[in-house]
């Protein structure tokens, strides 16, 4: 028994919903010294009805990118570039206009549902509050709407009045999803939506995300470091390293035949399935040398890359088109006619 998650036909996908161009984010540093941009010239598109995943390790700039799109960065953060959502430039909107975009048009789910919910209030209260704010409903109507949203995410109505601590991780994440969906957004940004969950709860949340996307035509932008999870959920994958996009393409190709050495190395780090049993011939996982610092010249991955040439350390590679996406590596042959 399975739920089909196969992608919407390519032709129907081509309408962009969110278009981020040359996004640069510089966070204020403690000493007032100009810091290196944590997001450095990132461009990508989320099409209507598709699932885009941004993957990478901690510090790659994935979550900062999402925070920048939602204009939720701390004071003093410098953002340049263009964020076009549904024909509107989000960087030009004032705080009031942004409030109506957040929650109502773009929903957001964070990694850790145990800290995102207020322990003083019940799950139902949170969702009712979200419905009240996003849809200007009141009283009984708001409560009914909250029940309806919770039903959609598979949250049992018997637990409407349960407090966050009384819920399992999976149930808390469902409550979070209900809050994010309360305003009936077109785009859902899910930052590590399954990382805090065990494998079964994670599987059910993944199935739910796929179902929501299928039934409501929701566009999904998933941020994760979990490559197998992404392989299952996403249509397209953007791989980030040190604030830059290093590879982009269809999920099935990027995660099975990666073009960029970093994507390849990350995939090889996953313990292979099959059950190891011979103690004398222990398999060893390939080692990516630790990242001490990001070089100011050349390819940012070069110090850790086993294929790096002298040129890689000297010249910063550009993101070049490939047959079905893009890659930032001089070792990957570029094609002129992609896109």
């Amino acid at each position: 028994m399975t739920i089909e998650t196969s992608a919407v036909p390519a032709s129907a996908q081509a309408v962009p919903l969110l278009r981020v161009r040359d996004l640069r984010v510089t966070l204020p540093s403690a000493m007032g010294v100009a810091a290196v941009p944590v997001v450095d010239g990132v461009s990508f598109v989320v099409h209507r009805g598709e699932t885009l995943a941004i993957v990478g390790e901690s510090g790659a700039g994935k979550s900062i990118t999402a925070a920048a799109v939602m204009q939720l960065l701390p004071d003093g953060a410098r953002v340049t570039g263009s964020i076009d959502f549904n024909g509107r430039e989000l960087t030009q909107l004032d705080e009031r206009a942004l409030q109506s975009v957040r929650g109502r048009e773009i929903g957001l789910v964070f990694q850790d549902p145990s800290t995102a919910l207020n322990p003083m209030y019940s799950a139902g209260w949170h969702v009712t509050e979200a419905v009240t704010l996003a849809r200007a409903l009141k009283g009984k109507a708001a409560k009914e709407a909250a029940h309806a949203v919770l039903l959609q995410v598979g949250f049992p109505s018997a637990r409407f009045h349960a407090y966050p601590h009384e819920l399992s991780g999976g149930m808390r994440q469902r409550a979070m999803l209900a809050i994010a969906l309360a305003g009936e957004p077109q785009l859902l940004i899910a930052d590590e939506p399954t990382t805090a969950l065990d494998v079964i709860a994670s599987g059910r949340i993944r199935a739910l995300l796929a179902e929501l996307r299928h039934q409501r035509g929701l566009s999904l932008w998933v941020i994760s470091h979990d490559l197998p999870m992404v392989a299952e959920l996403a249509d397209r994958v953007v791989v980030m390293y040190a604030g830059e996009v290093v590879e982009h393409g269809p999920a099935h190709r990027v995660l099975r035949a990666p073009a960029h050495p970093y994507t390849r190395d990350l995939l090889e780090c996953l313990p292979p399935m099959g059950g190891h049993s011979t103690r004398d011939h222990r398999h060893r996982l390939p080692v990516i040398p630790p990242a001490d610092s990001v070089p100011s010249e050349g390819c940012r991955y070069a110090p850790r890359c086993r294929d790096a040439l002298a040129l890689c350390h000297a010249e910063h590679p550009t993101l070049r088109p490939t047959a079905d996406g893009e890659a930032r590596c001089i070792l990957v042959p570029a094609t002129g006619d992609a896109q």
Binding site: A207, A231, M273
Partner: peptide, 12 residues
């Protein structure tokens, strides 16, 4: 429930 890279599953 374990997502897999190996099988290229497009169904959950």
């Amino acid at each position: 429930a374990l997502p897999s890279l190996e099988t290229n599953r497009r169904a959950l």
